[in-house]
Nucleic acid binder design. Sequence first.
DNA 1: GTGAACTAGTCAACCTTGTTGACCATATCA
DNA 2: TGATATGGTCAACAAGGTTGACTAGTTCAC
Lengths: 148, 148
Amino acid sequence: MPLARLMAMAFRSLIDDLHDRLRARGITDVRPAYGFVLLYLRDHDATAREIAELMGTSKQAASKLIGAMEGAKLVRRAPHPTDGRAHRLALTRRGARLLTTVETIYRELEDEWAEVIGAPAVASMRADLLAVLRARNDGELPPVRPGF
Amino acid sequence: MPLARLMAMAFRSLIDDLHDRLRARGITDVRPAYGFVLLYLRDHDATAREIAELMGTSKQAASKLIGAMEGAKLVRRAPHPTDGRAHRLALTRRGARLLTTVETIYRELEDEWAEVIGAPAVASMRADLLAVLRARNDGELPPVRPGF
DNA sequence: GTGAACTAGTCAACCTTGTTGACCATATCA
DNA sequence: TGATATGGTCAACAAGGTTGACTAGTTCAC
């Protein structure tokens, strides 16, 4: 069985578990892509161009995604401090709360994975994936884009 | 960084590398989904319903995918031996050759991954992912469906 | 043996999310 | 200062998915 299929199924499993648990908490208007953007905004000021790079999509698709998240009141567009063309994205209060929930659920899921395969194995998997992805992408991480 | 993002990037990397190498061999009319179906047909007689289960899509989407592969002369639909409603899918000669190429490239990629993180780490990653996916899916593997 | 219930696969219509190239305003650079 | 580049949006389009209805065939209870 190729690693690609394993990665696809692992991704599927994690995303489905995440969204099942969000729904169990009454959060039903969140697309899978939102989680990646929220986590990115935790650590970065970002523009639409950077979200396009993160997700591996066109600027237009990123703009639409941001628009949808704005509509769900998870982010807001602020003027960029130094570039009149660009927006700076910021988390709203609702967005920050959702980010916290997503992080909590991801920790639960990884704890459950650790129960099956052991915490050292989870840590190794993470470190190995980071190493091989950076090695194959000039030291950077590739985009998120998991689809066909 | 959540495991989901790592899995998404790993999947992306493998699929992009696979298709880059297929194109380098002059094979340009293959969608990423085809590889999963070809590998499945290596080991199973399959019907459209089973391809839908494999891919985690509707019967209609599976039917369309099979139709596209039939059009690319990778598979053919044969009458089912015992069920007059169903088709039995078979690889064509071209499909069998492409399967061999896909398998070869996947072995190359996994060898390259092993160069970065070590062959034991690749084997552990594979075994751990299989274990955790089966544990979380009643002993079965979940569908492939990597997209949002 | 028969009829009800179920299933495999297809149909047409629709939906979601992506891409493309043009465009405008702004920034950068020679 | 003018040429080039960029950030983001626009409208139109594309790919691949879903849905519910449908037909033909299968299974099952009686």
